[in-house]
């Protein structure tokens, strides 16, 4: 295919995504919005997996972002969507920058469990500080405004979908650039050989720290986008099972591309919802079976099918 023609499938996909609210039902649109938002948190998990760092506590930053925005609404009276997203991003970055100072010294199971421990500490705080966080009741998000434009309740779903689409696309593009940069490749290098990284004069800890806070910032934005879409947040956002879900989706999608978390996340949300509809009491079994199939037959995740298709279609 010629150089300019190569972009046609992307343009068509972009057009289809932008015009989706005119075609799809509100429920499907909602699922796509939540999946797209969560894909940002999964992207952070994938980013860390590139350096062979598995975290079972990434929901910490997801909840930190959502609650920073929720508290912004409650105590500062913020209703501007951009301000709330900015606040969540800063919270994700800030908390990960702080905890990262400790966490980046560890590897393997210690890294995974230390993250899990911190996320459960936050879960406990969110649960027990009822007067501030609302405890199990959580916090409510009113419909946000964007500049002078207020979102009407009727079109809220569609507009939040578009917001998630544009913001998500921007963040995915920035992460794509990061993956292709020297700093992005250093994470790959760390996975293979930390000794050589140090003997190139590159700081392993600084590279891991950078990756860690980027992942934290992405999760923070994911948290507020889900909060805005659902209209309500609870401490469950920080619970270990949420972190497990991010890891699940990362494995489901694969780590080969920045697009893999999006594919994995959309697939996960739809499989979960339809599995729940078909079998309300055993839907987890359906998800478990799906993961087993992926591990046995597609160890590189669903995204590896794209690589297989490219290989089969030849040069």
């Amino acid at each position: 295919m010629g150089g300019s023609l190569r972009f046609i499938p992307f343009l068509l996909l972009g057009l289809a995504l932008i015009t989706a609210p005119f075609v799809l039902s509100g429920w499907v649109l909602f699922l796509l919005t939540v999946a797209g938002a969560k894909a940002l948190a999964v992207l952070g998990v994938v980013l860390l997996l590139r350096a062979k760092l598995l975290t079972f506590g990434h929901a910490l930053y997801y909840a930190a972002g959502a609650y920073a925005a929720g508290l912004g609404v409650k105590y500062l009276g913020l209703h501007n969507g951009f301000a709330l997203i900015g606040l969540a991003f800063v919270a994700g970055l800030g908390v990960s920058a702080l905890l990262g100072l400790l966490v980046i010294r560890y590897r393997g199971v210690y890294f995974a469990l230390l993250n899990l421990a911190f996320s459960m500490v936050l879960y406990g705080i969110l649960l027990k500080f009822y007067s501030v966080t609302g405890g199990t009741d959580g916090l409510a998000f009113p419909a946000p405004t964007f500049g002078l434009i207020g979102l009407s309740e009727a079109s809220l779903r569609a507009q939040l979908y578009e917001l998630t689409l544009f913001l998500g696309s921007l963040l995915f593009y920035l992460t794509y650039r990061f993956f292709a940069s020297p700093a992005g490749y250093v994470l790959f290098a760390i996975r293979d050989n930390e000794v050589r990284v140090a003997y190139m004069g590159i700081s392993v800890n600084a590279a891991v720290y950078l990756g860690y806070i980027i992942a934290g910032g992405l999760a923070g934005v994911a948290g507020v986008l889900v909060g805005l879409s659902v209209g309500h947040i609870t401490p469950d956002l920080a619970f270990w099972s949420q972190s497990g879900e991010f890891v699940f989706v990362a494995i489901l999608g694969g780590v080969g591309s920045v697009f893999a978390p999006v594919v994995g996340s959309i697939l996960f949300e739809f499989v979960r919802n339809y599995a729940f509809e078909l079998s309300p009491y055993t839907w987890q079994m359906t998800l478990g079976a799906a993961l087993l199939l992926i591990i046995f037959f597609l160890p590189g995740g669903v995204w590896s099918l794209v690589g297989l298709a490219r290989t089969r279609s030849g040069p």
Binding site: F178, A180, S181, P182, G184, Y185, A189, G201
Partner: peptide, 18 residues
């Protein structure tokens, strides 16, 4: 390329490694 990036001191976040 990683060695050359390390030597240059430009292990940046934006410009491509390649």
């Amino acid at each position: 390329l990683l060695a050359l990036a390390a030597r240059s001191g430009r292990v940046g976040l934006w410009a491509r490694l390649h």
